[in-house]
Simulated scan of single mutants.
Amino acid sequence: MSARLVRLVGRGFLHALLVVVALVWLVPTFGLFLTSLRTVKDNNSGGWWTVFAKPAQLTLDNYANLVKNDTILDGFVNTVLIAVPSTLLVVTIAALAAYAFAWLEFPGRDWLFLGVVGMLVVPVQIGLIPLAELFGKIGIMGSVVGVVLFHVAFGLPFAIFLLRNFFAAIPASLLEAARIDGGRDWTIFFRVILPLGLPAIASLGIFQFLWVWNDLLIALIFADRDSQPLTVALQQQTRSFGSSVDVISAGSFLSLIVPLAVFFGFQRYFVQGVLAGSVK
């Protein structure tokens, strides 16, 4: 009885501690949301917590004005045009390459995979100047295509490494049974590998999408005014923070909605991918 009571008390304390940590972690996001619902005058006169004493401060005018802001809207559209192709290309190419490295025999396979692993340690900053010069010569510097290609190039090494290790853990008997039934490599890939590897692929897709969606460094260098994403558009507004706090707060909260929707939409696959291989 005493041992059971100790376990209950300890578990309750742990749960209470986790709730407190979660609430503290969510305070900045909650503060950003309340700030986006207040006017510039109210934000300059006091902190967002004053809304609890004066609920009349809350208004949707900031979001109504945001819809009319061409810079923010164009940045949001450009972010979608950059994040979606970058994610789909990385996931598609990495899945095909990972299957080849895991289950196909060809000369130099291990050395090629070692080269892919070696590219994981290459910092992004090293490729900025050479790729900027290359993109300028072929005429895609400052375009959405250039930003997408950069994200794809630097996202593939980790993606291939992650999926290859997951695909290699699939029982070989399943692939042998598929080959006995007359299945070729493409059939095995689509009918066996993809369904079994869906958790890892979904996890990779979430990570890649979040990395590209929140990117600022690559967008500042490789995107011009017509192709700049939302992060750059918001960063430019910080030059006049006091007068643009309504645009920054509402735009920043808008930029949070899509990644959260993607994460919660694929949360089930994400959890499966994280736990994959932890038990047998």
Rank of each mutant, 00 (worst) to 15 (best):
I138P: 00
L216C: 08
L163F: 09
L234K: 04
G251I: 08
Q208W: 08
I193G: 00
S143A: 10
F222S: 03
Q235G: 14
G182E: 09
V77A: 11
M119C: 10
N65I: 02
A172T: 13
I82P: 05
Q267D: 06
I193S: 03
Q267C: 00
F101V: 04
T29R: 04
L275E: 10
V148P: 01
A172P: 00
S243Q: 14
V271Y: 09
P123D: 10
I82C: 04
Y99C: 02
V117L: 15
L162T: 11
G118P: 05
E105P: 05
V245H: 07
L230G: 06
I257R: 00
A223I: 08
A83D: 07
R38A: 05
G273M: 07
A98Q: 06
L131D: 01
L234T: 02
V9S: 04
Y63V: 10
P28R: 10
A102K: 04
I221M: 06
G146M: 05
E176W: 09
Q236E: 11
A168I: 10
D42C: 03
A172E: 13
F270E: 05
F167C: 01
L8Y: 11
L175Y: 08
V116A: 03
E105D: 14
V144F: 01
G47V: 11
A64I: 14
G136R: 11
S45L: 15
V116W: 05
F189L: 09
F167W: 09
A95V: 07
Q208E: 13
Q267W: 13
D215R: 05
K54D: 14
V122A: 05
G242P: 01
V212S: 00
F263D: 00
G75T: 09
M141E: 06
F30E: 01
L174W: 09
R268L: 08
A169K: 07
L37P: 03
I188H: 00
G108V: 14
I160D: 03
V84A: 12
V148N: 02
L104C: 07
N44V: 14
F266W: 13
M141T: 07
V232R: 03
P229R: 03
S45K: 09
L89V: 15
I126M: 11
D226P: 00
Q125V: 14
V19R: 04
G277I: 10
L204C: 11
R11V: 10
T50W: 10
A202C: 11
I257T: 12
R225G: 01
L104H: 10
L256R: 00
V245I: 15
F190K: 02
Q267Y: 13
N214S: 12
F253P: 04
P199Y: 09
V116Q: 02
A132K: 11
L66C: 02
L32S: 09
L174T: 03
L230Y: 08
P195S: 08
A233L: 03
F106Q: 07
L216S: 01
I140A: 07
A200L: 02
N62V: 08
A22R: 06
L128R: 00
V274S: 01
L8Q: 14
G277D: 08
A98M: 06
L149G: 00
A177C: 04
I188R: 07
P28V: 10
D185W: 12
V21P: 00
T238D: 01
S249T: 15
F266M: 13
G12N: 10
T238Y: 12
Y269W: 15
S252R: 03
I188Y: 01
